[in-house]
Design a protein around this nucleic acid. Structure first.
Lengths: 351, 351
DNA sequence: CAAGTATTTTTGTCCAAGACATAAGGAGGC
DNA sequence: GCCTCCTTATGTCTTGGACAAAAATACTTG
């Protein structure tokens, strides 16, 4: 998912890290102890907050404050898990743990409901939270798509998308409708108005529709050959699919490697597949600070004659320029970039 | 990916756990240091062996033996990562770390090549390994598909798959060809005969083909309604897609939430979508130790009337039974499970 | 010798407290 | 308003020790 997605931090692929810790018996034991305690491994899995982080929060902020079992191991009560989940969501929206641990549960709920997707980082604090309570929460534009998602009607949602696509065409659909939808879903999720599984459903349906559309197009044959993927740390593939659709629409051959290809392997693949362009997609969930170093590194690994395109919401917030790297500010830029690629000159009609 | 996939441990979406630990720069930095070092977080992601376990192995067995960066942090050379992957694979097959750390790389290859997917647990040891050396090492069956992948010809590879599917039909293709291919790719990858990006390409192509096939079928309408997804920690979606294809082939309505849905949200989705069945896919990359606890936990979260199916290579190696959970030993079992589901009785013809 | 039980070894996960680099926030200057 | 320097906040990593569950081995008994 994700290129252009305003995204929900741990939506579809949040968690994975370390691997689940403690074993099964640990999990069964809790249920014996009154039935509602979970080990630190389970807590990590259920909240998306790492074990180390859970311990350090406990040490620094005094929360969470798990009880200990006979062995001295942490056992988290369900309520703390629930609160951790809430906190995690706020963290993903730009809040800081030091601030929100002090807030009351009520404040957390208000915070999660009041603020939009991104942008408003900074000044948030427990205090700001209270003032926010006065505001009317985020108006969230009404849309048939959102209604379909909220009523869990995958077929209806899919139909709505298909109809729009049929009406305005794949290109316009990808360039105009999808970015808007992505933003809307992202906001709804961030505001707690959409559950995680509803957002998963959205992502799956859009991906399926895009893939279907791409499959129905004749395979691209024209230059430049483009390699599509995301870097490690970026799980969202929607952006890649959107670009793949636009390229294939123009008869350009695109090869997708899916998400999170190690940089070294991207470079190896670029050479093996003999592409002229490598295109990367970055969602808002991608750590902003990592963008420049990662892209620079990949640029260094790639042969000089291979162009590097980067796009997605994660790139939009970055203003600088990197030598040898081309930014895809809007999806419509693809046309321009394609024309600017020398290898394509013979076959595309500029202007 | 992954349900039934014999899979390559970190294929497409390896990482996730906690959030990527060290940053990307960690990943990029190494390339500066001679180009092939990875942090412990990355090592965990790429090998499937937990951080704690990596450290304890180093302490006890002297392997892996990472170098240290300026900060004193472990940096694993690529070769050790490759060896760890091989070891992980053997562990998943019932070997024990204390034995195989002593074996030579050659022995590891022989072991991984000589024995099939599962079954032969028990007596394996380094000694057994050596005797195995007499056997011909993993012959890696020659296949046109593998050749196409190795020559990076996505179109040719896709054609091969399409042709086979057209010849024997989607059902047989999913039940017979794909598991074999997955196993072959997994072996090739584990044996270092396939690069990461080649395996990414494989995964993407198969997923695209499956999705295309599913889209071409009429949407399922019959009971039971099935919810498909994977748990946090399991990124491989191929298994989910395979099951989705088989269900849709039978006219059964399946809803897919993609990979890594938090357990809580799986339960919420099951209720919201009013499904009779939740089906999970586990690849070999999924930590064996976590299977029982995770499944038990989800079972507890789900309403009693919702059935829980688990399948994939990650489940095959588990022999026990869990109350209220049904194992999908082979893909062909789907027919049986469907018939056994009460809600479907009115519409399916048993026996 | 088979089968079952007790004992030993192996193995993964957890804990503690500390260290440190990077991110975010804020101050100051152009 | 934008950029740079400085301070604080935060997450990840480190070491060495501990322990329970699983696996392997030894031992008993029929």
């Amino acid at each position: 998912m994700g290129t252009t997605v305003p995204i929900f931090s741990h939506s579809i692929l949040v968690c994975p890290t370390t691997v689940l810790n403690k074993m099964t018996s640990t999990e069964s034991a809790p249920s014996v102890n009154g039935g509602q305690m979970v080990s630190i491994a389970v807590a990590e899995r259920e909240t998306g907050v790492g074990k180390d982080t859970l311990r350090v929060w406990e040490r620094r902020y005094g929360f969470p404050r798990p009880v200990r079992d006979a062995r001295g191991d942490r056992m988290y009560p369900r309520e703390q898990i629930a609160r951790l989940r809430l906190m995690k969501r706020l963290l993903d929206n730009g809040h800081r743990p030091g601030k929100i641990v002090l807030a009351t549960d009520e404040d957390l709920l208000v915070l999660s409901g009041s603020q939009g997707g991104q942008g408003n980082h900074g000044g948030h604090s427990a205090v700001a939270a209270k003032s926010a309570r006065d505001q009317t929460a985020d108006p969230l534009p009404h849309s048939a798509e959102l209604d379909a998602l909220r009523s869990h009607d995958a077929a209806a949602f899919r139909s709505l998308l298909s109809q729009q696509m049929a009406r305005i065409g794949l290109e316009q659909f990808v360039i105009e409708i999808l970015p808007r939808l992505n933003a809307m879903i992202g906001n709804a999720w961030a505001g707690g108005k959409l559950q995680i599984f509803e957002e998963h459903l959205y992502t799956e349906q859009v991906k399926a529709l895009l893939r279907q559309s791409i499959n129905n197009l004749p395979p691209g044959t024209r230059r430049p050959r483009v390699l599509l993927t995301t870097v490690p740390g970026e799980q969202h593939l929607i952006g890649v699919l959107m670009v793949e659709a636009l390229l294939t629409l123009r008869g350009i051959s695109a090869v997708s490697l899916g998400a999170q290809t190690p940089l070294h392997d991207i470079a190896a693949a670029a050479i093996a597949h003999d592409v002229q362009v490598v295109a990367l997609s970055f969602s808002l969930a991608f750590r902003a600070r990592q963008l420049v170093p990662v892209v620079s590194e990949l640029r260094a690994l790639l042969p000089a004659h291979v162009r590097l395109w980067i796009g997605g919401m994660g790139v939009s917030r970055f203003s600088g320029n990197l030598p040898g790297v081309e930014r895809l500010v809007s999806l419509a830029d693809i046309a321009r970039l394609v024309e600017e690629t020398p290898e394509s000159a013979g076959q595309t009609q500029p202007g």
